[in-house]
Nucleic acid binder design. Sequence first.
DNA 1: AAACAGGCCAACCGCCGAATC
DNA 2: AGATTCGGCGGTTGGCCTGTT
Length: 248
Amino acid sequence: MGRAPCCDKANVKRGRWSPEEDETLKNYLKKHATPGNWITLPQKAGLKRCGKSCRLRWLNYLRPHIKHGGFTHEEDQFICSLYATIGTRWSLIAAQLPGRTDNDVKNHWNTKLKKMFLAANTNATGNTVFSTPTSQPQVEDCSVFDDHENSAEYHVLGLEQTPLPLGSDVSGLGSSCSVPLSNEAVSASLVKEENENGTQWFGEDESFLLDFVYEDNGFVSLENSSEVAPSFGSLYAPNTTEKRKRDN
DNA sequence: AAACAGGCCAACCGCCGAATC
DNA sequence: AGATTCGGCGGTTGGCCTGTT
């Protein structure tokens, strides 16, 4: 026996949302701090919509501070960089781009970035220079992301099942990391070293050096102190705790 | 001006994992 | 322990828009 449908499909409206429906949903969610049960929300709010449809509409369009279109070059780079390391995990990627939704990032990738990415990573003979992640991507327990306001500084985030917010305590970092470089679609390995200068992270070939800066509040940011800048992207440490079932 | 093709993007579909019963 | 429910996710679809022939 299959699973019961989430709503009576014959009695729900489908397709594009009207401004009136948007207003009804917004007003309901304004009055109720949390949506509670999305399945029962349409009835309570007076909408002839599937609960899932309401949720999607809210998350992708009506939520405050949502940005649409107009992806910047930095955002493009960031998406490509993360795609190269974690694959099509749009919700994780979108979580690092303020105001962007997974649907938006996914659409932008499928319509624009995918072609650019494949073109950029295909050599003259038509062979892909590096493989795009198709199966189980290596996702590990911490990452560094550009804060988009100070390009010389990279904030360190914990990455468990969902990314932690900027400034999360990541005191339990592993002993080595890797970081995608801005001019190469590969990850460079880093090695952590404790010395009189504190904790430093070196590129394995010593072509660049990264310093962690421990702040008073116990949080950590990362500064690039070499000529080879890491790109927008992720710094990954070993000891993955990430669970991923979807890929076979 | 009409027909067609391709791009774009909002919305839907169906699966999965976690929570709850 | 197994069944059910729900939220969340990535893949896909379909309709609108724009450019080209």
